[in-house]
Design a protein around this nucleic acid. Structure first.
Lengths: 234, 234
DNA sequence: CGGAATTATAACAAAAGTATCACAGCGGCA
DNA sequence: TGCCGCTGTGATACTTTTGTTATAATTCCG
């Protein structure tokens, strides 16, 4: 929800570059395609926060692309670019379903302003919507990843960020043993420079919070000589 | 939700008539005002599906009206008309918050196309969007989103706009932890450029108003290392 | 059983994150 | 115009987390 992904389908490299520059300024990650087929394929395969379509395209025209995208996806905002302003009613028509429209040559300021409005609108939309919960539930231990909530037999546990990341990783793959090195790189980040036994300390603290008896753990087990794993027999 | 109500605030009678004719063709019920004050009053008193504002107006300019409407109502689509295309970024900017924009002289076909898109969008929204609850009531805290009113144990709280947005967002998803970045993007707008710890200050002020003991909050809790959440166990 | 290797635990200080307050800029409003 | 409330920022005090050090406990294996 932070950096926006934008797809530009446009055969004129100058325009693509111009738009890319300004979209990057807004903090967007931009990818582009030069022809219709590829553009459509990409739009359908990947997920974008905005798709910018030129109407005149080699291969498959922009309106067709727009219509096909809309068959499978009513969400993603689509902005159309065209040379002829008379086309606007066709382009923005119900069947086609574009969200906004710009006639070439357009002012960059207007372009940016319209993009901003589109983004504002999507955020407004995403605002109060409850996200689909990602839940892990094993033997009285419940983890709601999105809420960053861990419940043990009905009580909320107060885990530190590292502890939370650790338990999520381990509990996502019960039975899989992770070496300390792996844990450091997965939880701390690949560029962490420190001692492996730092992991011990954190596992220990984690156990202190989630285990009834920390010296006889039932959730987070030690794989001797290797590292740690989440108990798969629960 | 069949016939749409449209308000036109415009001093040029010719334009008002032209727009009215075409809006009527679309099945809209159109009313109009010739000056700013009346336009604003009407926009605030009655309920419309679209408000069309001229930027240049006697009395109160269109951008001001737009901004004032947006203070109390984020929903109603607003389309701005202006003579100068350079103004677009100001007009559609975050504070002003217009949804669409047309530069005079504009093509009627374009006007109609844009209106259609706006209506299509509202209908999509009405159809799919989960109806945002207008009232939130938890543990003596009552939030009336429409009226922008917050009551605590029967007493009305005087929250600033930001504080109100914050509490509404948090209380809409009790238990969900929002990072400061998310809050900035959702409450301040995705293009806010400022420090994350601005959020701290606002949360702090909010707590000062809604919590009995601000250092032992029961409504707005801290998720350490992440951000804030609304207490789900109330 | 002994000893080396590995893991567990506790304590501590540095680092990171959070709370709070004061202040200046801005815009609204009388 | 001057006053007042809202905002964002800077400064500072405060809290929690975190990595490390130190030491104890456990496991493995000959």
């Amino acid at each position: 929800m932070d950096t926006k992904n934008v797809l530009i389908v446009e055969d004129d490299t100058n325009i693509t570059e111009l738009l890319s520059i300004h979209l990057s300024d807004l903090g967007c990650k931009v990818v582009s395609e030069k022809n219709g087929q590829n553009g459509l394929a990409r739009a359908q395969d990947e997920s974008f926060d905005l798709i910018i379509l030129d109407v005149m395209l080699p291969g498959l025209n922009g309106m067709e692309i727009c219509r096909k995208i809309r068959q499978g996806d009513r969400q993603t905002p689509i902005m159309m670019l065209t040379a002829r302003s008379e086309e606007i009613d066709k382009v923005m028509g119900l069947e086609t379903g574009a969200d906004d429209y710009l006639t070439k040559p357009f002012s960059v300021r207007e372009f940016i302003a319209r993009v901003r409005v589109i983004f504002r609108r999507s955020e407004e939309k995403a605002r109060y919507a409850a996200p689909t919960p990602q839940l892990i539930s094993i033997a009285g231990l419940e983890i709601d990843i999105d809420k960053r909530k861990v419940m043990l037999r009905g009580e909320r546990l107060d885990l530190s960020p590292r502890e939370f990341e650790l338990i999520v990783l381990l509990a996502s793959n019960p039975g899989k043993s992770y070496s300390r090195k792996q844990l450091l790189s997965l939880v701390w980040g690949y560029d962490f420079e420190g001692y492996e036994h730092t992991v011990n300390t954190h596992i220990n603290r984690l156990r202190g919070k989630i285990e009834a008896d920390a010296s006889n753990p039932i959730f987070v087990l030690t794989t001797w000589g290797i590292g740690y794993r989440f108990n798969e027999d629960l």
